[in-house]
Design a binder for these strands. Structure first.
Length: 581
RNA sequence: CGGGCCGUAGCGCAGCUUGGUAGCGCGCCUGAAUGGGGUUCAGGAGGUCGCGGGUUCGAAUCCCGCCGGCCCGACCA
């Protein structure tokens, strides 16, 4: 390609509405343009990067024996109604009607479609299968942000494993785990594989691939000592024992005028330290759970935590089976408990579901609200005074707490989710009637797994982690071009011809090269090459040409060498072959 | 969905308080010089001032409504 007739609209200024580094750089370097909130056009340079990422993904998928499909993006409502997700997915599912008024939606993922196709698999002998596609997903995110990191329309590699049993699923899951490792590594990323919540997807086990970055939106707890890593939605830690004072014979009410928060009560004369308080939160859960179809019903629940602990809403959802969980409104709280936030407690409460964090188990001498505005109870013995329906892990882990595996201090870092793999089980295959006959002739639902990688998010994550003050620094494996030849005096015959010869020679070696013959000042070409992030630059200018040499510069670290003109193509090609892997 | 900020040329912005024929920088086009890190000079093109309504002799500017975008929060497979 020639730079002059390739559409590379670089910008000098950061776009005003961009915050994330990758957003600024991808726009400035001319890879993407925004069309609407969370909707982006991929420009030629961006598309080159995406295609290289896709090629790596396809290569690794094909290596595990997966077969590529192309499924529709437009789905009939009926499909989603069958799995129950039509009601569960809420506003995130783009819904529309066709001309006859039939309800449809745009696919946010493809478990339903693949499972319905899988219903044509009738015999265990046809298993296992791994099916995949690269295709556009639509999710009406409440808040798109950070350029390509969180969007409403994006391309995903999604794959689905079909197996006769759990052991088969475990194997397919492991194949994906290993393939994902290689894919990200080849893209220049080193994501952490972390335990994650499966959320509304359902299933028994899931692992996210997380790239540490401030632009990320998930928090990951990880242990530098033993390698334990988990999304904060799932992470646990070891807690130090708290010594309780001898309890009272019964809870004792005391006046606490003006006390509204845990902190207030810590400071209050006759109050209690936070770890000796019970935090009482009121939540509204949809009780239907994820198995039952139809619109969910709602239920008030009390959520109890140690005073100094924070609730993880995802753990609450996971622990209770709720799909939605939201804090109750003040009126709902008053109706349920007869008091307002600040004086709430679970002692003596009947007829309301009570879930408690495991850290409260066996505690006594605790202080909590009395369900009477301006009053609290002290001397509460949890086992004796509170009717707990379920003990759950509800607490959000904090940095510095002890690793559950080895006891070392956990770190917590912001991360971008670039991939997620799920062991789904039989939820979708049962719903879609994807049953096979096993060896004994019994009909049994296919066991399914699902696995996703966001292509655009991978591209943005690379930009997010590979850049400097001058622009992006693409790894050779995904770079829009591997080499740029900057000809400094394009108006003169000799440099131009030298540039063209180099260009032809590199093309012949199979190198992805762009020739910059634009009538621009050298500085402009250098700035553009750096901004766009091309890994290698060859400079053909009068200075070197006088000695039959060209300058070879590596973007990554600025390493510069003089190469003899007649050997340059060969030398550069060798270096690139080395880095392609 | 709650809170905040913002829509003026391809990009970045000023003008709005105090209404009077729309401006700056970059980029773009033409010409000249220059030629190893966004060079310089001269000339030029380009705008329904987000949309609709109102007030006014007159609205980018004041008022009302709507739409769109960004950030924080809620939410998020």
């Amino acid at each position: 390609m020639r730079w002059s007739n390739t559409f590379i609209p670089t910008l000098r200024d950061d776009p005003a509405d961009a915050e994330a580094v990758s957003h600024k750089l991808l726009v400035r370097a001319g890879l993407i343009r925004q069309l609407s909130a969370g909707i982006y056009s991929i420009l030629p340079l961006g598309w080159r990067v995406c295609r290289k990422i896709e090629t790596i993904v396809r290569d690794e998928m094909d290596k595990m024996g997966a077969q590529e499909f192309r499924l529709p993006a437009l789905h009939p409502a009926e499909l989603w109604q069958r799995s129950g997700r039509w009601d569960v997915m809420g506003d995130e599912l783009f819904r529309l009607k066709d001309r006859r008024g039939a309800e449809m939606c745009l696919g946010m993922t493809h478990e339903e479609v693949f499972a319905s196709i899988a219903s044509e698999v009738r015999s265990y002998r046809a298993l296992p299968q791994i099916w995949y596609q690269l295709q556009t997903k639509f999710r009406d995110e409440p808040r798109p942000k950070s350029g390509l990191l969180r969007v409403r329309e994006f391309v995903m590699k999604d794959s689905y494993s079909l197996d006769l049993d759990r052991a088969g699923l475990d194997h397919a899951f492991q194949l994906h785990f290993d393939a994902y490792r290689r894919i990200f590594e080849r893209c220049g990323l080193a994501p952490l594989a972390v335990e994650a919540s499966s959320g509304a997807m359902g299933g028994s086990e899931s692992i996210e691939f997380m790239v540490t970055s401030d632009a990320g939106e998930d928090w990951v707890a990880s242990c530098g000592a033993c390698g334990y890593a988990a999304n904060l939605e799932k992470a646990t830690s070891q807690l130090a024992e708290v010594a309780d004072a001898a309890g009272l014979a019964a809870p004792e009410e005391f006046a606490t005028p003006g006390v509204r928060t845990i902190e207030d009560l810590v400071r209050f004369e006759g109050g209690a330290a936070a770890e000796h308080q019970i935090k009482t939160l009121v939540y509204v859960l949809d009780a239907a759970g994820r198995e039952a179809p139809g619109p969910p019903s709602h239920q008030i629940a009390l959520v109890l935590l140690r005073g100094d602990h924070a609730l993880s809403e995802q753990k609450l959802r996971d622990g209770t089976g709720a799909v939605q969980a939201r804090p109750a409104q003040p009126e709902e709280i008053r109706a349920a408990l007869g008091a307002s936030a600040g004086s709430l407690g679970a002692v003596g409460v009947a007829g309301i579901r009570i879930v408690a964090d495991a850290a409260l188990e066996g505690r006594c001498g605790m202080t909590t609200g009395a369900n009477k505005d301006g009053f609290h109870l002290r001397g509460v013995d949890v086992a004796r005074d509170v009717r707990v329906d379920a003990w759950l892990d509800l607490r959000e882990v904090r940095a510095g707490e002890a690793c559950p595996a080895c006891g070392a201090a956990l770190g917590v870092a912001k991360s971008i989710e670039v991939g997620h793999i799920f062991k789904l089980g039989t939820r979708y295959t049962e719903a879609m009637g994807a049953l096979v006959q096993d060896e004994a002739g019994n009909s049994t639902p296919i066991v399914m797994g699902s696995y996703g990688i966001g292509i655009g998010r991978v591209m943005a994550s690379i930009a997010e982690t590979h850049h400097d003050a001058n622009g992006i620094i693409w790894p050779v494996t995904v770079a829009p071009f591997e080499v740029v030849i900057s000809v400094l005096n394009p108006g003169e015959v000799e440099p131009q011809e030298a540039g063209e010869r180099l260009y032809d020679a590199l093309r012949q070696q199979g190198i992805d090269v762009v020739l910059d013959l634009r009538d621009e000042r050298p500085g402009v070409k250098f700035k553009d090459a750096d901004l766009v992030g091309i890994p290698y630059r060859l400079v053909v200018g009068p200075r070197g040409l006088a000695e039959k040499k060209v300058e070879w510069k590596r973007r990554r670290d600025g390493l510069t060498r003089e190469l003899p003109l007649d050997r340059a193509a060969e030398t550069v090609a060798e270096a690139i072959f080395e880095e392609r892997r």
